[in-house]
């Protein structure tokens, strides 16, 4: 397999983020173990928005930590995104609510439980397809693309 450049990985990773439906979301439990769950998302270009019940383990963990690491579904074409989390009430932003519902197929404001939006501002991104690509996997660091 040919190694991709940072610029190619960036294009591929952004394509994958636009195309994808769900991410694996790791969050820290209070006892220093980690929780892991799949959530659907909306991709805005620099932010990734997920909705989850306000009382869920993931919401509580991410609100406490203020930081999340999430991965697109494939372990063959790995795209991992990491960044600060801000919480937004579902009703606080009508545009966001509609965009999220359109992207994910469910309206978080119409659920029986109270939901919240968790918005991840991307500050680190990793992309690799096989062991050879592990070196150079960080394509964004501290909010800056390494090929800029």
């Amino acid at each position: 397999m040919t190694l991709r450049t940072a610029s190619q990985r960036r294009r591929d990773a952004l394509d994958a983020l636009r195309r994808g439906d769900d991410v694996w979301v790791a969050s820290p439990n209070g006892d220093r173990t980690a929780h892991l769950i799949a959530l659907s998302y909306l991709w805005h270009g620099t932010r990734l928005t997920m909705a989850t019940p306000l009382a869920s383990k993931t919401a509580r963990n991410l609100m406490r930590a203020g930081w999340a690491r999430v991965a697109l579904a494939s372990t063959r074409d790995v795209v991992i995104v990491e960044g600060a989390i801000t919480t937004t009430a579902i009703d606080a932003n009508g545009t966001l609510r509609r965009a999220h519902a359109e992207a994910t197929g469910f309206d978080a404001g119409a659920e029986p439980e109270e939901y919240a939006f968790l918005q991840l501002a991307v500050s680190r991104m990793e992309a690799w397809r096989d062991v050879e690509e592990l070196k150079g996997r960080a394509i964004m660091r501290h909010g800056r693309w390494v090929d800029d």
Partner: peptide
Amino acid sequence: GRHVWVASGNENGTAHLIA
């Protein structure tokens, strides 16, 4: 399967995730 996603707790109170 050949790969699994592994979530683990970092010392600083965040979580790590890797395949």
